[in-house]
Write a protein that binds this DNA or RNA. Structure first.
Lengths: 183, 183
DNA sequence: ACGCTTTGTGCAACTTGTTGCGCAAAGGAG
DNA sequence: CTCCTTTGCGCAACAAGTTGCACAAAGCGT
């Protein structure tokens, strides 16, 4: 899939230890490709075995910090992957399955859960906007290409959350037994 | 996760064989929870073993069609699940990882791939709109609750694709080495 | 020096999702 | 009837993702 490539990307941006990578995946990269620390450690081991990355391997470092960096072959692999064609994966949203189940059952109240999700998505949107404000203070006009791409990635997240919220706020008042609200 | 519940939902809407379910997952349900036929068969076996569904089990039906329908306990399980709280899963979009890799590499042309994805998403949007046109001809005002929910689910897909396309068309002209285009 | 907590690393087991293949039955073409 | 394709069912193997636990080292308060 693309977890190894996400790790290579992060290591290319800056070398790091496994724990540091895990922290990055909690924040920036993980917003659109999440991973647990176990996934990361396993993948780091594979990448090192494949010769794409290297580590400060003081012998028998169990419990000690290990620092990884990308090698030339890793960069080449990443370059090839980022040029390749890969179709988008279908969306997966359990909430929509539940709405459909609720429609088929006819007896389930979903408004409250929808409101809860609105809060969560609003929080995510706020996070994105805060990052945009701090990392891309100008309107995006005078950035150099690399910053533009990073900004574009962030903009995708912002656009997604806004669309989700707009849908949810349109949908909420149409649900049965739910008072009409204006978002 | 929620594959079993997606199957229960589909069986509640209408009993079916495994192949019929697989076809439905290609179409409506699978737009927001996809599954291969092997996943479906495996899950049907588990659900039957758990007593949530039942099948026309003419003994040793290898190669023959087997018809499944939901039982009372299955409906109860589905009802409980659709009432439960479950947080949304983080987005996963490999294209965004690739954009970020391209930003870090600084040497990769991504405009063409982005254009290709625009075509794919536009196709998906068209599909959704065609379904909306045929299944929900009136503006959504006079529908009964169950149809409203189904329409809301479809609207989520439409909103998602539109947001994605808007983002992509904003992003495309800002990419390096790419002529400015108006969407 | 001694515990206690936090951080970093990792194993093991499990669940979920994917890919590739095989086989049985049905149905049309010759 | 026989061949051949399509449809439905399913196994086996694998890849990806998750959960729970364990253990070593470092930092910290006492």
């Amino acid at each position: 899939m693309s977890l190894p490539h996400a790790i290579l990307t992060s290591l290319l941006e800056k070398p790091a230890s496994g724990a540091e990578l895990a922290r990055r995946f909690e924040k920036s990269l993980g917003y659109f490709w999440s991973a647990t620390h176990q996934q990361i450690y396993r993948e780091l081991a594979r990448l090192e075995e494949a010769g794409l990355i290297e580590s400060s391997d003081r012998e028998s470092t169990r419990g000690r910090q290990r620092h990884y960096s990308i090698r030339g072959s890793g960069r080449a692999e990443l370059e090839q992957w980022s040029r390749a064609q890969e179709d988008p994966r279908p969306v997966r949203d359990a909430l929509l399955v539940r709405l459909r189940a609720a429609a088929a059952l006819g007896t389930v109240e979903v408004a409250e859960e929808l409101r809860r999700h609105i809060g969560l998505h609003q929080g995510q949107l706020d996070t994105y906007l805060a990052i945009e404000h701090s990392d891309f203070p100008d309107g995006g006009s005078a950035e150099h290409p690399s910053a533009r791409l990073q900004h574009a990635v962030l903009a995708a997240g912002i656009g997604y959350e806004r669309a989700w919220l707009a849908w949810a706020r349109d949908t909420l008042p149409t649900l049965p037994r739910d008072p009409v609200r204006t978002g």
